[in-house]
């Protein structure tokens, strides 16, 4: 069942143009001119119940604008949105009871209050009776391992603990869909990992659909089975993570350590990424050369060590951002 349905979604922003300097300011006061920026240009996609999807794109691609339209923050200029069958533009409050949101860059918690008081406040916002709220707080406390920080004011928590509390607070009303906008921004690798584990656990235990935006490729790789890429307000890819890797992995990285010096610079399909003495890091374009072709260039007696790996996902995504792959 599709929990998010987006059809031909559009959003424009009107940006005031101003020539430089005081003269430009005076001129714009007399006659202002505007430019229309098409932030989202007719986007279509669906998200199924229980999916964890990554909605990614470079800065200014339109991902935050899309997520804000899906959650009822922004009004679209065209198209149709249904989240759990609800139109956010017409029934914002009804939708708010069913979804949870975490914006990594915007705190929703009261900083001077403890996580417990914050959770109680969120319980009241979602009209959860006191007894039921207490029960859910207990549950969330266990799930997110918040026992030790429950009575510490949020301002005294570390960033990682705070984000954990932000996510926990967004779950108090047991939302069916969770929108996470850059939830791991600014966190260290250990904390990032624990946040990812929590998201996974939550998806598994509550069957929550997760709509995630992140610039961190590890978030996407470790959490999502499907990736939607948006660039310049248009979808450039909507595919499973497996397909993304399969179709775009036409390059391999070979790291070799040789006993003797060799020269790989003049072969079509082989690019020397790094060389230090007899240690080489090569990028092989599989359309032009196979791994066997490369190995034929090396005498087996000279080979001390070898490692073959895929192109990092980060590079694949950067390439899609740069060149675009139309869906």
């Amino acid at each position: 069942m599709a929990v998010i349905e987006v059809k031909n979604l559009k959003k424009n922003f009107r940006v005031k143009l101003k020539e430089k300097g005081l003269k430009g300011s005076l001129k714009s006061m007399v006659k202002a001119s505007y430019r229309t920026v098409e932030a989202v240009k007719g986007v279509n996609f669906e998200v199924q119940e229980g999916e964890v999807i990554a909605f990614i794109g470079p800065n200014g691609a339109g991902k935050s604008t899309t997520i804000k339209m899906l959650t009822g923050i922004l009004y679209p200029d065209g198209g149709d949105i249904r989240v759990l069958g609800i139109d956010p533009t017409k029934e914002r409050k009804k939708l708010a009871y069913e979804i949870g949101t975490v914006f990594g860059q915007k705190e929703q918690l009261w900083m001077h209050l403890t996580p417990y008081d914050n959770f109680k406040f969120f319980g009241a916002i979602y009209d959860i009776p006191d007894k039921e709220a207490e029960k859910r707080i207990e549950e969330i406390k266990e799930l997110f391992e918040l026992q030790e920080i429950m009575n510490t004011p949020v301002r005294n928590l570390s960033l990682g603990q705070r984000i954990r509390c932000e996510i926990a607070a967004s779950l108090i009303h047991q939302p069916k869909v969770l929108f996470l906008d850059e939830p791991t921004i600014g966190l260290d690798p250990v904390v990032k990992d624990s946040i990812r584990k929590l998201i996974k656990k939550m998806n598994k235990e509550y069957h929550t659909t997760v709509f995630l935006t992140s610039h961190d490729v590890s978030d996407i790789e470790k959490l999502c089975k499907r990736v939607i890429i948006i660039n310049n307000g248009e979808l450039v890819m909507d595919d499973s993570m497996e397909n993304l890797k399969y179709h775009h992995l036409n390059k391999k990285i070979i790291e070799i350590k040789l006993a003797k010096m060799a020269d790989f610079s003049n072969f079509d399909g082989i690019k020397v990424l790094k060389q230090k003495d007899t240690n080489f890091k090569l990028e092989i374009d599989l359309k032009k050369k196979s791994i066997a072709d490369v190995l034929k260039l090396i005498h087996s007696d000279d080979l001390i060590d070898m490692n073959i790996s895929n192109t990092p996902l980060e590079e694949i995504i950067s390439e899609i951002y740069r060149d675009g792959v139309k869906v």
């Binding site: 922003f13 923050i73 922004l74 915007k106 705190e107």
Partner: peptide, 14 residues
């Protein structure tokens, strides 16, 4: 509110 355009400012509720 229909014309609200939000922003990407870093905001804390302090």
């Amino acid at each position: 509110l229909r014309r609200y355009s939000s922003s990407n400012l870093m905001i804390a509720k302090i």
